[in-house]
Amino acid sequence: SEFSSRSGYGEYVQQTLQPGMRVRMLDDYEEISAGDEGEFRQSNNGIPPVQVFWQSTGRTYWVHWHMLEILGP
């Protein structure tokens, strides 16, 4: 990996993601499973900070930056 740390990767995702971009989950996290795909909606200063609309659940759920792989527009 070109990223030395999880936080470095998270910063990359945070700087790159734009609303509407497709993402894939890298880790299991509460209701969301690794491999689930969705659409980035928004972020804020909460914890976790990233709101994604997940195809698997049909609704939005908040996750962490480093848990997401960017699939593209």
Rank of each mutant, 00 (worst) to 15 (best):
G38K: 04
Y29M: 08
P19V: 06
T60C: 10
Q42G: 15
L26E: 02
G8K: 11
P73F: 04
G8T: 10
N45V: 05
R24Q: 05
S1Y: 15
R24S: 06
F53S: 06
N44K: 15
H66W: 08
E39C: 14
P73Y: 10
Q15S: 12
E31Y: 00
F40H: 01
M21C: 06
N44H: 14
Y61R: 14
S56Q: 07
Q14P: 01
S1I: 09
H64I: 04
Y9G: 12
S4D: 07
G20H: 12
T16Y: 06
I47C: 15
W62Y: 08
S5W: 09
D27I: 15
D28M: 06
Y29R: 04
I70H: 08
E2H: 10
Y29T: 03
R22T: 08
I47P: 02
S4N: 15
T60R: 02
P19H: 10
P73H: 10
A34K: 15
R22Q: 11
S56G: 10
L17M: 12
G8H: 08
L26V: 08
G38W: 00
H66R: 05
P49N: 09
G72K: 13
E31L: 07
Y29C: 00
L71D: 07
V23K: 12
V50C: 15
I47G: 07
Y29E: 08
I32A: 14
V52H: 04
T57P: 03
D28K: 03
R59G: 09
G72H: 12
W65L: 00
E69Y: 00
P49M: 01
R6D: 15
N45W: 04
I32Y: 03
L71M: 14
W62R: 15
N44I: 08
Q14L: 01
T16W: 06
I47H: 14
I32H: 00
E39Y: 04
V50S: 05
E37H: 08
I32V: 12
F40E: 10
S4E: 09
Q18C: 08
S56L: 02
S7L: 13
Y61W: 07
G46Y: 05
P19A: 07
L26C: 04
Y12Q: 10
G8W: 08
Y9L: 10
G72W: 14
T60Q: 09
T57I: 14
V23F: 01
I32G: 03
G35E: 04
L26K: 15
S56H: 07
R41K: 15
M67T: 03
G72M: 05
R6H: 11
I47R: 10
V13I: 13
P48G: 06
S43V: 09
P49A: 05
V50I: 06
R24P: 04
I32Q: 01
G46P: 01
Q55V: 13
V50G: 07
I47D: 15
E2D: 13
G20L: 01
L71Q: 00
G20S: 07
R41L: 13
D28N: 09
E31A: 10
Q15N: 10
S1G: 13
Y29P: 03
S1V: 12
Q14N: 04
D27M: 11
V13Q: 01
N45I: 09
G72Y: 09
Q42E: 12
D28R: 04
E31R: 09
F40G: 00
R59M: 11
Q42F: 04
S43A: 12
G10R: 08
Y9T: 04
N44F: 07
F40K: 11
Y9A: 07
T16N: 00
M67Q: 12
P73T: 08
R41W: 13
G46L: 13
V52R: 00
E11G: 11
E31T: 08
